[in-house]
Design a protein around this nucleic acid. Structure first.
Length: 274
DNA sequence: ACGTTGACCTGTGTGC
DNA sequence: TGCACACAGGTCAACG
């Protein structure tokens, strides 16, 4: 499900409901999503804590508690994190519930159970999967054309693989990778070492533009994605290539093709992308 | 250093 | 309607 714009939207919509709230109790229905510590220890450390702040880093959500611990959550493909009333119907795949004193709760629902939750001491980022190895945030001011050129310089391989590599740039996934490459007129198979400086700049501009557009429209809801209040996003209506195989290219009318690149379904225009 | 594949899970859509 | 199969917003490990 969620790439940078979706995770960012979840963060933004949850914030007013959870910051400053005390977690009265925790219920674990499926312990498999909690990667560390053990469930009993997890509950012991979280219950009674107050949420200080919620941040996003790449596709990870970081929920800072008042006891020098950070809850790190990755939604993977189908994870949802939503605010619900305590008495509202529980969906089938609710694996984790944080209850607040005001009658509301934060629920983690994940059909495919790929999602991951870690509770780690502040700063111990290396204990939370790939969090410590993430590349720069593409929407931050520090991510300049100059810094992008440094990242791409000397690298080899397919453009699509580069965009999906979280250690190069944090937060791009399959949908936005395809949209970025279409907008930049670049083929997913293109070897990055052959990009001209003009093409590199076009790529840089469209990474920023497409991710910003995704954030602005509150993410892409094609299957499971919803924001922190259970609402769908709107970017699915603006997609130019993703999920549009066989439909005409918005730019030239050629039928969009689908292929597997880097093991991922990839849609592109054979006429506009080189 | 790169590329491909399978593993982790469940649900949905397709074609027969 | 049933069944088999492919495929799905991600990442990681194990190969060649």
């Amino acid at each position: 499900m969620p790439e940078l714009p979706e995770v960012d939207t979840v963060r933004r919509t949850l914030e007013p409901f959870i910051v400053g709230r005390r977690i009265e109790s925790v219920e674990i229905n499926y312990g498999g999503i909690i990667k560390k510590p053990e469930p009993a220890e997890f509950i012991r450390l979280v219950e009674g804590r107050v949420i200080r702040v919620i941040k996003r880093r790449g596709k990870y959500l970081l929920i800072q508690l008042d006891a020098e611990y950070t809850l790190v959550i990755h939604l993977r493909m189908t994870g949802q994190l939503t605010i619900c009333e305590r008495n509202s119907a529980l969906s089938k795949h609710t694996h984790l519930i944080f209850r607040f004193e005001n009658g509301r709760e934060l629920r983690f629902v994940d059909v495919r159970k790929f999602g991951m939750v870690y509770l780690i001491p502040i700063g111990a980022w290396h204990e939370a999967g790939g969090l410590a190895r993430l590349g720069p945030e593409p929407l931050e001011d520090e991510f300049t054309l100059c810094s992008f050129c440094e990242i791409i310089k000397g690298k080899k391989g397919k453009l699509k693989a580069f965009l999906l590599d979280q250690t190069r740039i944090a937060g791009i996934g399959n949908i936005y990778a395809d949209e970025i490459m279409f907008a930049a007129g670049l083929s997913p198979q293109r070897q990055i070492e052959t990009l001209s400086s003009k093409e590199t700049e076009l790529l840089y501009e469209n990474i920023r533009a497409k991710l910003n557009e995704g954030v602005e429209h509150q993410g892409t809801s094609i299957r499971d994605y919803v924001n922190g209040l259970g609402e769908k996003g709107g970017f699915q209506h603006r997609l130019k290539v993703y999920d549009r195989a066989g439909q005409p290219c918005a730019r030239c009318g050629t039928s969009l093709l689908k292929a597997t690149v880097c093991g991922r379904g990839t849609v592109y225009c054979p006429h506009c992308q080189h």
